[in-house]
Design a protein around this nucleic acid. Structure first.
Lengths: 257, 257
DNA sequence: CTTTTCCCGGCAACTAATCGACTGCGGTCA
DNA sequence: TGACCGCAGTCGATTAGTTGCCGGGAAAAG
């Protein structure tokens, strides 16, 4: 089984904004680029303590499963540190990842209290620390702390938009367009300046990217190569440097006008 | 402009269950096949009257637009009769329909009160009667009538599952699989017994179907023809008769095991 | 240090799906 | 009755995307 293949991959680089999610999220009308406001930010220190007291902290190694589709649903997990990948795997083995969720977000939707079964799976894509809030406790906490309830609703609405945007992208854009779109989003979230352009400072393998845009590993390789030939990106040692965001923006099936 | 090309298309045939939605909804773990329980069913006659009083009734002809993506969002529409098609249209003109919503459901999500802008468009796919509940009025009604609030949450959760399921289907299944899946769903909702098999009693054009599965009109024609050659379906005069649900079930990338 | 594992990369054959265009049918309307 | 229009159906050309395979290189594990 996986035992931390690379120290680099999986750690969130310093340049990264703390809260957010990397995926095919934003469509034309999407604001909230980095994700919803973190769930706990509006709470007073006392309230925060109250919530954490009710929850059960859990530490995960890279690769460990937090919940899996078809499993019984009970409550949510609040991410304290690390990165959780939420994805769906079809019976025939094809996979689509919804998003990589960062610290400050919660996972386990679309229902928050006691639901039926999970529609998605969640695994740690880096070493993580999470707090589990079971449905029953969460419900009473939400009744007690209005700001928590509001945070939950905001988070849920955002998740709804994620599903919605993902469906729209998958339904109306070609893989190449989706890839262009994703690269722009990754640059937005993880971009660090560099001599050649903007480096995507979080390491994703071609397979990771393939799962995000709904494609095969090989096709991502081919597409990236073509982009490199056109001078849009430079790939040096499994890192992607984006040189021409303008061309990418045009490629993705532009939103403007 | 469209002026009711056919009298048959657009009317909901008698065999149809009253509430529900036809789309690529159900995944393996999906229950609620026909949609959520209708929003108003749990209300007392008096409460129902109260709600209808606050709303503004609107009658739509087939083809008329109810709301469109990018437009300002304010409240929801309750469907009294007819069928509303909710879809997204990309800047380059490709379209994906989320669902056809029937009487008893509401449209205008994923937010219910005052939101930002619509992510989807809604047009009447038959003559419709709807009741508009603006965000402000809806909010106070929901505060006053607990059962209405619960209905809203149930409806929203269901919509979340729709987006989610649609994304999963689009991300992991081939068009052929999606088509098989859709046919099974349509039979489930609109199926009427017949000498050859089960007739899908609601008329959808090939273009309609293409938008539901995210494909081109031509490809739907070809796929249906291939299915006919294999004896899975029979198409007689723009109506589809499904003979072998078992084969379709196997084609769609089966859930069982 | 060696072995193993993972990941990039390329290649070839193949199928799925798109695009544009044209035909013919049937229904509707003037 | 004739003109029109939306829709099913078909064709050929082209592209997008898959599947399976093999090789090399870098990094982790032993």
């Amino acid at each position: 089984m996986l035992q931390a293949a690379s120290a680099v991959r999986g750690t969130v680089p310093p340049a990264v904004r703390p809260a957010g999610s990397s995926s095919l999220l934003l469509t034309e009308n999407q604001q909230w680029i980095g994700g919803p406001p973190p769930l706990m930010d509006k709470l007073s220190p006392r309230e925060r303590e109250l919530v954490l007291k009710q929850g059960r902290r859990k530490v995960l190694n890279r690769g460990q499963t937090l919940f899996s589709q078809g499993g019984k649903h009970d409550g949510i997990w609040l991410i304290e540190s690390g990165r959780i990948r939420v994805f769906y795997s079809s019976p025939l083995g094809r996979e689509i990842t919804l998003a990589y969720w960062h610290a400050g977000n919660f996972v386990g939707g679309p229902e928050v209290f006691e639901g039926t079964v999970h529609q998605w799976s969640g695994v740690a894509s880096s070493n993580c620390s999470v707090v589990h809030l079971p449905g029953k406790e969460l419900r009473s906490l939400a009744a007690e702390i209005p700001n928590l309830a509001i945070g939950l609703i905001e988070g849920l609405t955002f998740k709804g938009k994620c599903y919605s945007a993902l469906a729209q992208m998958l339904g109306t854009r070609s893989i190449t367009q989706r890839l262009a779109h994703l690269l722009l989003h990754l640059v937005e979230l993880y971009g660090v300046e560099d001599a050649d352009g903007r480096v995507i400072a979080a390491a994703f393998t071609h397979a990771d990217i393939a799962h995000m845009v709904g494609a095969t590993r090989q096709w991502v390789t081919i597409s990236l190569k073509r982009m490199q030939e056109k001078g849009i990106v430079v790939t040096k040692r499994s890192q992607i440097v984006v040189c021409r965001t303008d061309v990418l923006d045009e490629m993705r099936g532009h939103a403007s006008d």
